[in-house]
Design a protein around this nucleic acid. Structure first.
Length: 278
DNA sequence: TACCAGGAGAGCG
DNA sequence: CGCTCTCATGGT
């Protein structure tokens, strides 16, 4: 029977930290409720005593799409046990013990992070909002994320009007290559981490950092470890406090120190670093 | 006002 | 490799 609300039973889930941690850019909070769009669903999420309460605008037969997006069935405790037992990781976990990784749509994730270069998170949200309003399919309460096909038909000037500046040609090329079949985002699921990463990096504007974000947040390659300015700062200050470590050394350290779920560790360090400053 | 933001890519020694 | 510069745009 189709329904419009449910209770997702899940433990150890900090909804606010997760939706506001720079993984996804379309979630807005009003009071204690978060609203956003997952695929073709407009959904409101509210933390509850024994899980997360969810309500959608249009009735659904199944909630699998939401459990997948939130990764509600992931055993977070088992992942945290694989982290290195050192002071920085203990502090980062203690600061936000319910922080999770989402599992997003690859195209939306790729497009969003293509727009993220040297932008603050609040501005990335604004650009993505413009993009959805102008090119996304209208739906109840909001807009769907625009398809590659729709953006491929847009002009660079139209994209620039969404305030994305020099990132517009990159987004346009990505939309076109995906729309015409040159790049198959679904096929990347069948590849290993290195091969999928190399393929993403053939796109203009996609370097190692953005590729790793997509591999981690959309495909679930848990060894992907995006190194941005915040994470670089965290690694430098927390693990190499007395000597300056080169970028290459930091990358090697990241690839060897954090274990099979390094990407989760990265998210904890990122969140720890960002909230510690403010 | 001047500076900087979840980077990437090109040019240079 | 390692460094520097540039690319738009908005916020502080």
């Amino acid at each position: 029977m189709a329904v419009t609300e449910t209770l997702l039973r899940v433990r150890d889930y900090d909804l606010a930290a997760t939706l506001d941690s720079g993984q996804a850019f379309r979630w807005r909070r009003t009071d204690n409720t978060w609203q956003g769009v997952v695929g073709c669903h407009f959904v409101r999420l509210t933390p509850a005593a024994d899980g997360i309460h969810a309500a959608v605008a249009a009735p659904v037969e199944s909630w699998d799409w939401l459990r997948y997006f939130l990764q509600a069935d992931t055993d977070l405790g088992a992942i945290l046990k694989t982290f290195p037992d050192d002071a920085p990781m203990r502090a980062a976990v203690a600061a936000c013990p319910g922080l999770r990784l989402l599992r997003q749509d690859p195209w939306e994730c790729l497009a969003s992070f293509l727009l993220s270069a040297t932008k603050q998170i609040v501005q990335i949200r604004q650009i993505v909002a413009h993009l959805c309003e102008r090119f996304g399919e209208p739906m109840q309460h909001d807009f769907a994320f625009p398809t590659p096909h729709r953006l491929a038909a847009a002009s660079e000037a139209e994209l620039r009007a969404c305030k994305m500046g020099f990132r517009a040609p990159s987004l346009l090329q990505a939309a076109r290559r995906i729309s015409n079949g040159q790049l198959d985002l679904e096929r990347l699921r069948t590849l290993d981490y290195a091969a999928a990463r190399a393929e993403l990096m053939t796109l203009r504007g996609v370097g190692g950092k953005i590729a790793d974000c997509v591999l981690l947040f959309a495909y679930g390659f848990d060894t992907a470890f995006p190194v941005d300015v915040w994470v670089e700062r965290a690694l430098q200050e927390l693990y190499f406090p007395h000597r300056r470590a080169s970028a290459k050394r930091l990358r090697h350290f990241a690839a060897t120190h954090f274990g099979p779920h390094a990407g989760y560790a990265q998210q904890y360090l990122f969140h720890y670093m960002r909230t510690k400053i403010k």
